[in-house]
């Protein structure tokens, strides 16, 4: 096995991981703090991708598209929290799942009505369409490298916000005891709306970065959402650190599994058996990992401290 290839695949895994992280961060905050299972988080990812694509088509500027998509999705997210989700906090998880599944259908149809069912074309911004020399012998697509950098920066920023700022303290305090936070003079509803809005913006960031490499399509958020749930279960629900760790682990395991599991299996069980078992097993790896984590550490790798 070529070690350069291994390094390159690790970069691929990292890149996939940070995409997952952007989704997982918002989802885990909302789940951890508001105790809300929001299946429609993938819809916000989709909305972000669509807004960015629409803006880039209109203005031609990727930067303008980023700003528009982030602010637009922030606003849509906050609106969604105020109109639809607020009434769900006190309901049980099944109600939340049903209601937010309804939102998925709503968003998918809304997007199809506005932009049509066909996939939209969106290109990598020309400044980032080249490759960069990561190491001697490894050229890596610049756009994907930027995703890694942006993802890690967002993780760092989130870490600072959550651990070092008043907002972060309130978010953590709210996760453990929302009543007490309110009784000490903090408008917890507004806090929730804001947190939800930022979670939405993070999903949009993931979506808008995904647009040029994946497909901008109605329903694009559902596929990744399942993997994001795996991430937060592995990482520990409600924990940003857990989301990052889980995302990177899932990204790596999935990517390296897809790349190397079949060749490795073929040395053990022979090439034809590996051809059959390899792809199936590779696509199951993250679920196997999740099952293992649930068995040995039901709280996840980095559980959030709760009251």
């Amino acid at each position: 096995m070529n070690w350069l290839l291994v390094v390159e695949q690790c970069l691929n895994g990292l890149q996939f991981g940070v995409m997952l992280f952007l989704m997982a961060a918002g989802l885990t905050l909302v789940f951890g703090i508001m105790n809300l299972v929001n299946l429609a988080h993938g819809s916000l990812y989709m909305v972000g991708a669509y807004l960015a694509t629409a803006a880039v088509t209109r203005t031609g500027s990727f930067l303008a598209a980023v700003v528009f998509a982030l602010l637009g999705t922030l606003a849509i997210g906050m609106l969604m929290e105020v109109l639809a989700l607020r009434t769900l906090y006190e309901r049980d998880h099944l109600d939340q799942v049903l209601a937010t599944f309804g939102l998925i259908l709503f968003f998918n149809e809304a997007v199809a009505i506005v932009w049509g069912r066909a996939a939209l074309f969106t290109a990598v911004p020309s400044a980032l369409s080249g490759h960069i020399q990561v190491l001697p012998g490894i050229r890596y697509p610049a756009y994907r490298a930027v995703i890694i950098v942006v993802g890690l920066l967002v993780a760092l920023l989130l870490y600072v916000v959550v651990t070092r700022t008043r907002l972060g303290m309130l978010i953590r305090a709210g996760a453990s005891n929302r009543t007490m936070v309110g009784a000490l003079g903090v408008n917890i509803r507004l806090l929730y709306t804001v947190v939800f809005g930022f979670g939405a913006a993070l999903a949009a960031l993931g979506g808008l970065m995904a647009g040029p490499i994946y497909t901008v399509l109605p329903g694009m958020g559902e596929e990744i959402l399942i993997q994001v749930f795996v991430v937060i279960v592995i990482g520990g629900i409600g924990s940003i650190r857990g989301a990052l760790a889980g995302a990177v682990v899932v990204g790596m395991v999935d990517t390296l599994g897809r790349a190397f599991l079949r060749p490795m299996l073929s040395t053990v069980i022979g090439p034809s058996a590996a051809d059959n078992a390899g792809p199936a097993l590779a696509s199951m790896l993250i679920y196997i990992l999740m099952a293992a984590v649930l068995y040995f550490r039901p709280q996840g790798l980095f559980p959030a401290l709760r009251g």
Partner: peptide, 29 residues
């Protein structure tokens, strides 16, 4: 939260400090 902002400070039954915040953060938050 509006009652609290009117100037009422609550020390609740069972203390209910935020377990996942440090002492300083509990005070500052």
């Amino acid at each position: 939260y509006i009652v609290a902002r009117a100037g009422l400070g609550l020390v609740p039954e069972g203390r209910q400090v935020f377990p996942n915040l440090t002492v300083r953060e509990n005070l500052v938050a």
